[in-house]
Simulated scan of single mutants.
Amino acid sequence: MSDAQAFAALHKLTPVQAMQYLAGRTERTLTYSWQDLWQEEHAQQFTVSRLARADLLADLQRLITEAVDGDLSRSGFELDAKQLLSRAGWWGEKHVLDPVSGERQVTRFDPARLKLIFDTNTRMAYAAGQWERIQRTKRTHPYLRYVTAADDRVRPAHRAWNGVTLPVDDHFWRSHMPPNGWRCRCRVVAVNQRDYDRGTTPGGRPMRKTAVDLGEREWVNKRTGVVERVPVGVDPGFGYNPGVARAEGVQKAASDKLAALSFDVATKLRDDLEGAP
Rank of each mutant, 00 (worst) to 15 (best):
A6Y: 14
A18I: 01
A18L: 14
M19Q: 01
Y21L: 14
G24N: 13
T26H: 04
T29S: 03
Q35W: 12
Q45P: 02
V48I: 15
S49K: 11
A52T: 15
L57Y: 04
Q61S: 13
L63H: 13
A67I: 06
G70H: 05
L79F: 01
K82N: 08
K82M: 05
Q83V: 01
L85Y: 11
R87L: 15
R87H: 13
R87F: 02
A88I: 11
W91C: 13
K94C: 04
L97H: 12
V100E: 13
G102K: 00
R104C: 02
F109S: 07
R113L: 03
F118G: 12
A125M: 13
I134W: 15
Q135V: 00
T140L: 03
T140V: 00
Y143D: 12
R145L: 07
D151C: 06
F172E: 00
F172N: 00
W173I: 05
H176Q: 02
W182A: 02
R185V: 13
V191D: 07
R194Y: 01
R194A: 12
G199E: 02
R205N: 04
P206L: 09
K209W: 03
A211E: 05
L214W: 02
E218A: 05
W219V: 11
E228I: 03
E228T: 02
R229E: 06
N241Y: 11
V250H: 06
S255I: 12
K257T: 15
A260D: 10
L261A: 10
S262L: 09
L269H: 14
G275W: 10
A276R: 11
P277A: 08
